[in-house]
């Protein structure tokens, strides 16, 4: 998931940086005072999640958890993931500084998209609908991120199908595991802190 320095061509890097800059501005605006603790904790979760390794068969990848962030933060996933990637880049050499933009976009954009699409279903009264939606909320963003990584490499000149195959197969265990991880996280949150997942507008009457 973390593309290293010196792999991508300049246009891809610049496009990624520009898209991420837009996402960061929109994301930072969306984070209200009461969301700051939530955002910080999710940044911490993202920061350490990449250290948890999944070894199945020959492939070995790590958790991403961008789906969880997208479901909870919406567009705010951009600053949350950016911060996590920045620290991973500085402290662990995961990814790099020049690829920070494109890496953030690859992981945050699917998170935002599926968070937006699936949130109503996750908040559904029906347990079955909510469970399936949260599983999809965990796995689809990882899958889409893997595709975006393949696309970034393709735009730099690698064979799309070969790379896509490699990235998707490599991340398949994670796609499955994250479906369950996110499902349990969301069920837990709904029980203990239901307000975390509610649409933001509904919080205002209480706050006023």
């Amino acid at each position: 998931m973390h593309i290293s320095e010196g792999v991508l061509s300049a246009p891809v890097l610049i496009a990624g940086a520009v898209l991420t800059a837009g996402g960061l501005v929109a994301g930072l605006r969306s984070i209200r005072s009461e969301d700051i603790p939530k955002a910080s904790i999710l940044s911490a979760v993202f920061f350490v999640a990449s250290l948890i390794h999944v070894n199945i068969g020959p492939s070995s990848t790590h958790l991403v958890l961008n789906g969880l962030i997208g479901v909870i933060m919406g567009i705010g996933a951009f600053p949350v993931i950016f911060l996590g990637l920045l620290l991973q880049g500085l402290l662990f050499s995961f990814g790099g500084m020049t690829t920070l933009g494109i890496n953030t976009f690859n992981m945050a954009a699917p998170a935002v998209l599926f968070g937006f699409l699936l949130r109503p279903f996750i908040n559904s009264k029906s347990l079955a609908v909510s469970t399936i939606a949260s599983m999809l909320g965990g796995s689809l963003p990882v899958l889409t991120s893997a595709l975006l990584v393949a696309l970034s490499l393709f735009l730099t000149g690698e064979q799309f199908l070969a790379v896509a195959y490699e990235v998707i197969i490599g991340n398949l265990p994670v796609v499955i595991i994250e479906a369950f991880v996110v499902m349990f996280c969301i069920r837990f949150l709904k029980k203990v802190r239901p307000e975390v997942l509610e649409p933001q507008l509904e919080q205002f009457p209480q706050a006023a």
């Binding site: 998931m1 999640a49 990449s50 250290l51 070995s60 790590h62 662990f92 995961f94």
Partner: peptide, 12 residues
């Protein structure tokens, strides 16, 4: 997570 992390590997 901390215990996992120390043993774990990741992709750099």
């Amino acid at each position: 997570v901390m215990i996992q992390a120390v043993r774990a590997q990741a992709h750099a």
